[in-house]
Design a protein around this nucleic acid. Structure first.
Length: 920
RNA sequence: GGGCAUUUAGCUCAGCUGGUUAGAGCGUUUGAUUCACAUUCAAAAGGUCGCAGGUUCGAAUCCUGCAAUGCCCACCA
């Protein structure tokens, strides 16, 4: 017999437990197979960890994903599945680069670090920083107890992932899905780089709508919030059926607004124009508005080139084309100046206040300027032949587009999104998807695998050379002077390959059986064993950024899905529902909470009381509450150890000796069944709450108290504790593993024990008899409290049990013990003693003898109140059963149940009334 | 402007495909006790399930409308 400390102190155990678990090798599925924990032919379960930013630190969002994913990983591992949970980090291109840039400025006195150091030296500094920072996030992830296979750790920017990126780029280029084009892009002046549509954050701000004409003879007034761009207008668009303007369609007006050259404004028709808005006419600026640019493309496709005049440069200032008066001015200065110019000439008709929605760069935090630039794009509407026939509805070789393929895999159920409502959001995003600009003018990232032959004499030397490995010479002229495209790829391009690049693709696929990373021990590669992954668990906020792009890249490159299920968790907010942020000072740091309350408590607080896709309000009190629970579990173990002889880890299901034994085993079985079903249906919160209810309520508050009365529970306590630790392990890896070791010594790790399975359910009648005993006990306790008799140990109870006498007899000792009675009499027929008060529970009358302290008035009041509660219930049931419609239409079982309820309630009322009468 | 979600006890939230006298945790009130745990135990109070209609024998649950709140998307210049 062994005695545990009175309280569980997590920090004394956690680090050692993690170290022992990691060193055991069981986080690696190959080791599990080697050591016989997992059968070689066991079904796989795999997840890729959404890679945290390499320079980040652990926050509650990470903690949430780690907790939920670890629950799945540990559960499936214990189920005997070949479980791989693969970790990694993300280089987070812009975020990391600008962080290092800022550090070099503030700490080392550089003014312009990139220019001063040059590309290679600067990148070296970024890499150093990333490496140092990497260890922080990894160490912190381990603090959460994550059972990740660190031997397979990946990095978005390492050589294997780089190879995957270059390979996919070339594939897409060769099939025409990646193209280089001169298009309007989102340009961050501050960041001196493009950014994608999804990275824009729209901010509302007050603006002015200016109504003006280009010149005194121009027939149409237009409205704009950005007058300075009008220096680059090349058309005016009107609705084709707008009677006011129809006659002008096709005409060209030459106007001089002070730009470098007079503008030739063509009046064009576009059905997208709203005749009701403004003047019903839109000044078209193809160079500085994505929509106007598309209008320009449509016109051009019809053989009508209206032209495009960039008047704003990459430095955010007006260009030479804007005219001598404007060149070099900022956008704001040019706006004021042009408005003034219009006003002086009487061309400005009206100014109106309005609210404009401006796109800002999420990363660089400045207003994004749309301007035309030659960049690399992914064409989402271009047809390509599907690789393989794994996608239902699209045959191998059949032409499809990225949009169609992305749509298909969710529509046909090959990818399920939990909760389902996000599927609609996903489809909507696809419908509005435009070509994806993937090139960025920053240095830290995957440099685009494209080379140019600057000096080549032949015309084809002008074409980009796209290769997976750097070419030695120009294939056309043999020149060795090749220059690689200086741009890097959008970070989401590489993240999009994550589920398969981490499994060794393309190397593992090409070199089957070859040893090395990405090769499983049985000859099959990781890619073959684990792809597609089982579940992708992440926050709903990156559904578009990442989840959708993984589907895009995988359906294209592999003709397969990246994962079968997407589970989306909500955002962690503070008690008031606000986002946690440094500026609000409301951040709850997971490492802080782990230090104070333990990892298990922190994990539970992020999982219980939550639902998929909904935000979680977190408070320190909530975490503290789960710390109490952790301690409760510890003390349950402490109690059991004090009352158990020779605990055996290979606990055999014991035979129950009493009613309460049968009950607790029945409840345990039900809990196992619910936990299994719940986890597989992603109801992590419900399972946790069920386990807590079983542990604290049923086991600790009822059964352990009964064990003190009945005694001789060694075998059952051993079995229940053993099973319970396994059930809790995926949620609370540390305290369960700590107890396991304390109880069973250091023979083995709980994490590789087999998850419990429920045997066929025993007779439910046992539970009913126990439930009756519980009701009787609670009723007696309640009366005790009402009469302030808590410390009176001389109470006697008489039970008028009727048909249920036998059932009650079996629980009599328990009733007497838990209700702390001196005498208990159970009879088929019993009268209320004159000095007793009573209550009715499930048709059974219970009389508590107060030995003369009965307060008649109080008792009368109590009974009347009870009768007043039952009476309306009886009436409503009678009414319901008298209703022919109900009796005819409702299922027989429901009608029978209602009849039973009525007769019970009537009996209860009769007995209460009788008791009341006896008082008078 | 479009879409999605939320609205249930003082607080945080469960309530699956309609059939409970609507639940949990925290908090509150009252009481107990040091024999696993005060990071404990017992008991109690507390809700016309946002509002208004409708479908149904029966609605917190389904439908419609409205309101409040939050989020996402969008080319009203």
């Amino acid at each position: 017999m062994k005695e545990l400390p009175k309280t569980y102190e997590p920090d004394k155990y956690e680090d050692a437990i993690y170290r022992r678990s990691e060193e055991s090798g069981f986080f690696n599925p190959d080791v599990c197979v080697e050591k016989g924990v997992t059968a070689p032919d066991a079904p796989p379960f795999s997840m890729a960890l959404p890679p945290p930013n390499v320079t980040g630190t652990l926050h509650m969002g990470h903690a949430t994903m780690l907790a939920i994913q670890d629950i799945m990983a540990r559960y499936h591992r214990m189920k005997g599945e070949r479980t791989l949970w693969l970790p990694g980090t993300d280089h987070a291109a812009v975020a990391t680069e600008s962080k290092v840039e800022a550090l070099l400025i503030s700490e080392e006195g550089y003014a312009k670090p990139k220019q001063e150091l040059g590309r290679e030296a600067f990148l070296e500094r970024v890499r150093q920083f990333a490496q140092a920072s990497h260890d922080t996030i990894v160490t912190q992830s381990k603090k959460m107890g994550s059972s990740l296979d660190w031997s397979r750790e990946a990095y978005t920017l390492d050589e294997e992932r780089n190879l995957a990126v270059r390979t996919v780029f070339k594939l897409m280029y060769d099939e025409g899905l990646i193209y280089r084009g001169y298009r309007v892009v989102n340009w961050s002046v501050k960041g001196q780089s493009t950014c994608s549509d999804d990275e824009l954050v729209y901010v509302e701000r007050p603006g002015k709508l200016y109504y003006f004409k280009y010149g005194p003879d121009f027939p149409i007034t237009i409205a704009t919030t950005r007058p300075e761009t009008k220096l680059g207008d090349t058309a005016v668009a009107v609705h084709p059926e707008d009677e006011r303007y129809q006659k002008f369609i096709g005409q060209i007006f030459t106007v001089d607004v002070g730009a470098a050259k007079p503008l030739a404004i063509k009046i064009i028709a576009d059905p997208g124009i709203d005749p009701e808005f403004g003047t019903g006419a839109l000044g078209v600026t193809p160079a500085h508005s994505p929509t106007d640019f598309e209008m320009y493309l449509r016109e051009k496709a019809r053989g009508n080139d209206i032209g495009l005049i960039p008047v704003i440069g990459e430095d955010g200032r007006m260009t030479q084309a804007a005219g001598a008066a404007y060149q070099g001015l900022t956008v704001e200065e040019a706006r004021a100046k042009f408005v003034e110019w219009l006003r002086l000439r009487g061309l400005l008709e009206k100014e109106a206040d309005t609210v404009q929605n401006v796109g800002t760069s999420d990363r660089f935090k400045d207003v994004v300027e749309p301007l035309p630039k030659t960049q690399w794009f992914v064409d989402v509407n271009k047809a390509f032949p599907m690789k393989g026939d794994k996608i239902a509805g699209i045959k191998a070789g059949e032409n499809t587009t990225l949009k169609e393929a992305m749509h298909a895999v969710v529509k046909n159920g090959q990818v399920k999104i939990v909760p389902e409502r996000f599927e609609a959001t996903y489809f909507h995003w696809i419908d509005n998807l435009r070509d994806w600009c993937i090139s960025r003018q920053i240095w830290f990232g995957h440099q685009i695998p494209v080379w140019y032959c600057a000096s080549g004499p032949k015309p084809e030397c002008r074409r980009p050379i796209v290769e997976v490995e750097a070419p030695a010479e120009c294939p056309h002229c043999g020149a060795r002077q090749l220059e690689q495209d200086p741009d890097t790829l959008d970070t989401w391009f590489s993240s999009g390959l994550w589920t398969f690049s981490t499994l060794g693709w393309p190397a593992a696929k090409a070199m089957e059986g070859d040893a090395g990373t990405g090769t499983a021990r049985d000859g099959r590669t990781d890619f073959e064993v684990y792809h597609p992954t089982s579940v992708l668990e992440t926050g709903y906020d990156i559904l578009f950024f990442w989840v959708a792009r993984m589907i895009l890249m995988t359906t294209y490159a592999l003709g397969d899905v990246p994962f079968k299920t997407v589970y989306l968790h909500g955002l962690v907010r503070d008690e008031q529902g606000r986002k946690m942020s440094k500026s609000l000072g409301n951040i709850i740091d997971p490492l802080d909470m782990i230090a104070r309350y333990g990892t298990d408590a922190t994990r539970l607080s992020l999982v219980l009381g939550t639902t998929p896709g909904n935000d979680v309000k977190l408070s320190e009190e909530k975490i503290a509450g789960f710390r109490n629970f952790t301690n409760k579990l510890w003390n349950i173990a402490r109690f059991m150890l004090l009352n158990t002889e020779e605990p055996k880890s290979a606990a055999v299901r014991p035979l129950p000796a009493t009613l309460s034994d049968r009950w607790i085993l029945h409840r345990l079985d039900a809990t196992i069944a619910e936990a299994t079903r719940g986890i597989e249906q992603y109801n992590f919160s419900a399972v946790g709450e069920r386990l807590r209810d079983f542990t604290w309520n049923e086991l600790a508050d009822w059964y352990l108290e009964i064990a003190k009365i009945e005694g001789g529970k060694s075998a059952i306590l051993n079995y229940v504790l053993n099973t319970l630790l396994k059930l809790w392990h995926p949620y609370m890896p540390f305290v369960t593993e700590a107890i396991w070791r304390e109880v069973y010594g250091d023979g083995g790790l709980l994490m590789v024990e087999r998850y419990p399975e429920a045997p066929a359910a025993p007779d439910a009648g046992d539970v009913q008899a126990f439930a009756l005993a519980q009701s009787i006990i609670t009723g007696i306790r309640s009366l005790r409290a009402a009469y302030r008799l808590e410390s009176n140990k001389n109470l006697s109870v008489v039970i008028n049990a009727g048909e249920r006498a036998r059932e009650i007899e079996e629980g009599a000792a328990v009733i007497a013990g838990l209700a702390r009675l001196k005498n208990l009499t159970v009879a088929r027929q019993a009268k209320k003693p004159a000095t007793a008060v009573g209550f009715v529970e499930q048709g059974v009358e219970v009389f508590l003898d107060l030995m003369g302290v009965v307060d008649t008035a109080k008792e009368k009041e109590r009974l009347e109140k009870e009768i007043a509660t039952v009476s309306p219930y009886v009436d409503s049931l009678r009414k319901k059963l008298a209703d022919e419609q109900f009796v005819r239409n409702a299922p027989a079982a429901v009608v029978a149940a209602e009849r039973q309820k009525l007769s019970d309630a009537e009996a209860k009322r009769a007995k209460l009334t009788e008791q009341l009468l006896s008082l008078l």
